[in-house]
Computed example of a mutant assay.
Amino acid sequence: MAAQELHPSTPSSLYMLSAFLAMEPAESLVAFARVCGEGSVTEKVQRFIWDHCLSKADGKSHAPYGRNFLKKLITEVELNHGVVLDELYEQYAYYMTSLKDDNLVKGNARVCKFISFLFPDGCSGLPSCPNSRKLVVPLQCSLNMLEGDTGCSVWPSSLFLSEFILSFPELVSNKSCFEVGSGVGLVGICLAHVKASKVILSDGDLSTLMNMKRNLEYNNLNIGTAGPGRVTEGPNMVKCIHLPWESASESGLQDLRPDVIWLSVLLVQLGT
């Protein structure tokens, strides 16, 4: 009897799929693949990777990442004397030829990552927990954090803060929140998800701010502006301001009056 296929809803498969969508390091994906195969990357695991990951990837934007992942995956299977699916060999060959002169291999390429927050059993009563127990946040991000595009990269601190917000929504629900250095906007998206009364995001780099606004649109949030004479309100509204740290002034920020300020790894609870 043929081995039962992996299903995307099983925990090990879900973790691997989520890691692929978030474009986690290839080594992490291979490790998840081993777990799914109970110690080795079996043909069943490879079939799941092909059906649910690679064949549904977003064309050129995922190509450099997919090539690197496939190289490590194929090497893993071959070193353990396993059989590699023909589809994986063919896809790797396609990546090698199509990316030979592709600008995505170098420079400040940006891709769309999907950050998944998986809620464990017993969290159904949590206001932030969707019925599916999975919140997926699409984000346009940079592939090159060290090439001058740091504001458009997903930082570990923003992942930590976002998970904290989703785990303890009562701390920010119905409160005015202001984030300094919002980057790709992940923390702000999570604040809006848990129904903060007001969400104001900021960044000092204009290209980062533009990318942030695009990510808010990807997540069906309305974009407003905040500042003297520029206050907008509305459902699902997230306000964005250009805030270079070196020129920020107390007088320019007084009108914001947030209840909570977020600064990457530092949370300051303001007194009333």
Rank of each mutant, 00 (worst) to 15 (best):
Q4Y: 07
M16Y: 02
L17M: 08
S18P: 00
S18E: 00
A26N: 07
A26C: 10
E38A: 10
V45H: 00
I49P: 00
H52G: 04
S55L: 10
S55Y: 08
A57R: 13
P64S: 09
P64K: 05
G66E: 04
I74R: 06
E76Y: 00
V77I: 11
E78I: 12
V83S: 10
L85Q: 06
D86Y: 06
L88I: 12
Y95V: 00
S98A: 14
K100V: 09
C112V: 14
C112H: 03
S116N: 15
G122I: 04
C123Q: 14
S124N: 10
S128F: 09
C129F: 10
P130M: 14
N131L: 10
R133E: 12
L135D: 07
S142T: 15
L146I: 05
S173Y: 05
G181R: 00
V187L: 09
L191R: 01
A192F: 04
H193R: 08
V194Y: 01
A196D: 01
K198Q: 15
D203S: 12
M210I: 14
R214E: 15
N220K: 13
T225G: 13
G227Y: 01
P228S: 08
T232N: 12
K239D: 14
K239N: 15
I241Q: 06
G252P: 02
I261A: 08
W262R: 02
L266K: 13
